[in-house]
């Protein structure tokens, strides 16, 4: 569907805008999560084929003609991997934020300028 593709790109751009414009570390992570979701929606909608069913070969699908009846299974598998990696990365980022807050008592990115050139 072209609409889900556009929705995915819109979410991706909103997430990138959030990551670039916000100063709060937690809000930056929320922006990352939104961009991540946008990318998942884009990948899944690329694998969509009109008038076809999910790639699960139960009674809804004629096994001998399965290739003509199911959508692309590869984007679904990729997104499954991407969701798990996204979860792990988000959890790790949040625990970095907790540690940083313990050191400086601040969540603003302006207070962490050691790596700024």
């Amino acid at each position: 569907m072209i609409f889900t593709l556009i929705l995915g790109f819109v979410l991706l751009l909103i997430g990138i805008y959030g990551m670039l414009s916000q100063r709060n570390l937690i809000k930056i992570i929320i922006g990352f999560s939104i961009a991540d979701t946008g990318i998942h929606i884009i990948i899944v909608s690329i694998g969509y084929l009109r008038n076809r069913t999910a790639p699960i070969l139960n009674s809804a699908v004629d096994i001998s003609k399965a290739v003509q009846q199911v959508v692309d299974p590869i984007p679904s598998a990729l997104v499954l991997t991407a969701i798990v990696i996204g979860l792990a990365v988000t959890a790790l980022m949040l625990s970095f934020v907790v540690e940083l807050y313990k050191k400086r008592k601040s969540l603003s990115i302006d207070d962490y300028q050691e790596l700024k050139w």
Binding site: I56, L57, T81
Partner: peptide, 9 residues
């Protein structure tokens, strides 16, 4: 395997 996504993964 019934679920193609599972067999790919």
């Amino acid at each position: 395997t019934q679920n193609v996504v599972t067999s790919v993964i």
